[in-house]
């Protein structure tokens, strides 16, 4: 008998897939991100606490918007792959793209913290600070032309 096909795609993280998985591939474009967020949240809405669903949507939005604005900036539109799994403790997330490296993560720099002084209010720069505040096990991996950001969103007690 000929070689058997390799089993498709390992689980994200080290936890066994329990309670559901979600995979989606979509163009790196703002309205496609909206649709992806809506579908992801709808997929898990009945399995996770409402606060966690809100946190998941915000974290995913920040990661995906960052890819749309920076990862694929100046290039023809690329694709984003999103893979989510929920278990009893967290939502395990892996977001992959083939765009530019995320400079802030590659060189270890951090997003600046907001400084609420009315004369010098920031109009952005919260994205990475929010991602870091709301996730655990944040990791960035570059494999050939493919960048993968993985993290967990803990479920609210």
């Amino acid at each position: 008998m000929a070689e058997r096909a390799v089993a498709p795609v390992a689980a994200v993280g080290d936890a066994p897939p329990r309670g559901g998985e979600f995979r989606l591939c979509f163009p790196a474009e703002a309205f496609a991100v909206r649709t992806a967020l809506r579908r992801a949240v709808a997929r898990f809405a009945r399995r996770i606490p409402r606060d966690s669903a809100g946190t998941l949507e915000l974290v995913l939005a920040e990661v995906l918007n960052n890819l749309v604005e920076h990862g694929y900036a100046g290039q023809s539109r690329g694709l984003i792959e999103m893979e989510l799994q929920v278990d009893g403790e967290a939502i395990h997330c892996a977001i992959s793209d083939h765009g530019r490296e995320i400079a802030g993560l590659a060189d270890g720099t951090r997003a600046t913290k907001p400084c609420p002084v009315p004369s010098d209010l920031p109009e952005g720069g919260w994205g990475w600070a929010l991602i870091e505040a709301l996730t655990t096990d944040l990791a960035y991996r570059k494999d050939g032309g493919r960048n993968t950001l993985s993290f967990r969103v803990p479920l609210a007690g």
């Binding site: 606060d51 809100g54 946190t55 949507e57 915000l58 939005a61 920040e62 918007n65 009315p118 209010l121 920031p122 109009e123 952005g124 720069g125 919260w126 994205g127 929010l130």
Partner: peptide
């Protein structure tokens, strides 16, 4: 999201220093 928040801050800054911007009845998230 943070882009929307940035837009809110931009609107606030355009009103300052003489006018204020209040946000009414925001949802918990």
């Amino acid at each position: 999201d943070s882009s929307g928040l940035g837009a809110l801050v931009a609107v606030l800054k355009a009103l300052l220093p003489d006018r204020r911007l209040a946000l009414a009845a925001p949802m918990p998230n």
